[in-house]
Design a binder for these strands. Structure first.
Length: 490
RNA sequence: CGGGGCGUAGCGUAGCCCGGUCAUCGCGCCUGGUUUGGGACCAGGAGGUCGCAAGUUCGAAUCUUGCCGCCCCGACCA
């Protein structure tokens, strides 16, 4: 294994792939398009899970689990839903293997399923089937359920974390008595995602609405958060769908309201996936490796003793452990790496690759002066601090790093967001600068597709928080009051 | 499914045109020792059906044919 990473500017994809592997996050599995998430990568994902799960609970949601396998017939109950997913479904057709006469194992042709089963690409259908039995009255509503699960979408081309044939995610599925309530839920969860992205991932996002063309298959309206990566490409980091009564009608989910009249319930669904890991990696990391925001780092601090001869081993190890104990009392997660099988330099490089926010090194010199060397990962600055000040300074430093990473990403996004009014300008920005481009659009799918074909840029969203400006559509010149966010995207 | 490329030790590779001490080198691994303030050094060691199969040949990692697998670029997409 060679030592450094490829340079970000030279080859962003190679840099990303190498980083994912060398930081010990994930690797390609034996199965095409599938990913093995390694313990260190999974520890970061677990932090995300715990945080999000807490936020879901606070907004009144509970967890449940639904089956991996979905009868094929369920799938076709909602017309646009099938159309959206049909091309990427893995299908189970048999339930038994047998020994082949020529050696090896074959699928037993006698064990063919009467009805094929689809490995869930998303769970709306199987969940709404349950809802049809669970919901009779307005008293059963709202039903606010989330599940943590894996899904399979048979993608042609895959990339670790960003697009894999199987991925982990959470999918919330809620049912409500009124349209208004369901719409409010959709927007509430969009806000939860945006808050998570900004406060925990240190990733600024733009909240917006998808165009009809980019809408979730089966939704009336799809909202999303869009983030910008360091190569100037956009990444959809989460989606929240207002399903209207589409799935209620498809699965016959009716409830009796207070007046005793039957009506279909209103639905929402929302999800984020291990793709967030990709976003986290691409948004903050540098040529030295991963840069993790302290709130999601499995170890916020790593402590490395620097031995000089056997006599120093014991006192240095004890000094490191003491600092670790002090920090842990403050709720800081700490790893002490006192292995003597690796040199300090090796460890420094290794923990930078893994993105540990703060590194503390203690050697004989420090022991004598009652100091420690403190290095922050985000700026790679080092300073010498008195040992007895570490406990008071490190928590502040971690907060400072969290804020700094966010501000850096935010400034980057600002520098890569351009407003344009002509198609020439639009194309010029996309080719030379990349990033987000705000422009007017005439609102038709036809124009949207033309622009995509001509420039590869797609409409990421119609931003919610920005003023809509009147102006001509950049492509057709037709008068338009829809100002949208374009970008080349992952 | 179209267009390119690749398959040699755990990983990354040289050799292939021009067949014959060619199985190379680096990392990693094991043993012993010296080390440890930015990816340590020395000595010794283990590890290979050269993707699979058939063919050509006295002789194949190298040439021929057929499979299989993987990667990249498109179409598809969270």
């Amino acid at each position: 294994m060679s030592k450094g990473l490829p340079k970000r500017e030279d080859d962003y994809s190679a840099w990303y792939n190498e980083l994912v592997k060398k930081a010990d996050l994930a690797e390609n599995a034996a199965v095409r398009g599938c990913m093995v998430i390694k313990p260190y990568g999974f520890a970061i994902w677990e932090k995300m899970q715990q945080t999000l799960d807490g936020m879901f609970k606070q907004t009144g949601h509970v967890n449940a689990y639904f089956p991996l396998l979905i009868p094929k017939s369920f799938f076709s109950k909602e017309a646009s839903h099938v159309d959206g997913f049909a091309k990427e479904c893995a299908v189970v057709t048999h339930y038994r293997l047998k020994n082949s006469e020529t050696g090896g194992v074959i699928v037993d042709p006698d064990a063919k399923l009467e009805e094929e089963l689809i490995i869930r690409p998303t769970s709306e259908t199987i969940i709404w089937d349950s809802y049809s039995r669970w919901i009779q009255s307005y008293r059963d509503l709202p039903l606010l359920i989330n599940q943590w699960a894996n899904v399979v979408r048979w993608e042609m081309r895959t990339r670790l974390f960003l697009r894999t044939a199987e991925f982990l995610w959470q999918e919330g599925h809620t049912a409500h008595a009124t349209k208004k309530e369901a719409e409010a839920e959709t927007l509430q969860m969009l806000d939860v995602y945006a808050e998570f992205a900004e406060n925990y991932m240190a990733l600024p996002v733009i909240k917006g609405m998808k165009t009809a063309n980019e809408r979730f298959a089966g939704a009336e309206e799809t909202y999303c958060i869009e983030a910008l990566m360091q190569d100037g490409k956009a990444l959809q980091a989460g989606t929240s769908h207002f399903l209207g009564q589409n799935f209620a009608k498809a699965f016959d989910v009716k409830f009796a309201n207070k007046e005793g009249q039957l009506d279909y319930v209103w639905g929402t669904s929302w999800g984020v996936s291990t793709r967030l890991m990709g976003a986290l990696i691409m948004a903050h990391s540098d040529d030295q490796g991963l840069v993790l925001p302290p709130k999601l780092a499995p170890w916020q601090v790593v402590i490395v003793p620097i031995f000089k001869g056997d006599a120093t081993v014991e006192p240095l190890t004890e000094a490191c452990q003491q600092v670790a104990r002090d920090l842990r009392k403050l709720g800081v997660s700490v790893k002490v790496d006192d292995r003597d099988s690796q040199t300090p330099g090796w460890k420094f490089a290794e923990y930078e690759l893994k993105g540990v926010p703060v590194r503390i090194a203690i050697g004989p010199r420090d022991l004598e002066n009652k100091t420690a060397e403190v290095a922050r990962r985000d700026t790679r600055e080092k300073s010498i601090l008195p040992l007895d000040e570490l406990a008071s300074q490190i928590p502040d430093l971690l907060e400072n790093i969290q804020a700094n990473i966010y501000n850096k990403a935010s400034a980057f996004r600002a520098s890569k967001t351009t407003e344009v009014s002509t198609y020439e300008e639009f194309k010029h920005v996309l080719d030379n600068k990349g990033g987000f481009v705000l422009a007017n659009w005439d609102g038709t799918t036809e124009t949207e597709l033309k622009i995509k074909e001509e420039t590869k840029a797609t409409i990421r969203c119609i931003p919610l928080d920005r003023d809509q400006k009147e102006g001509p559509c950049i492509r057709t010149g037709k008068s338009s009051n829809i100002r949208v966010l374009f970008a080349k995207a992952y």
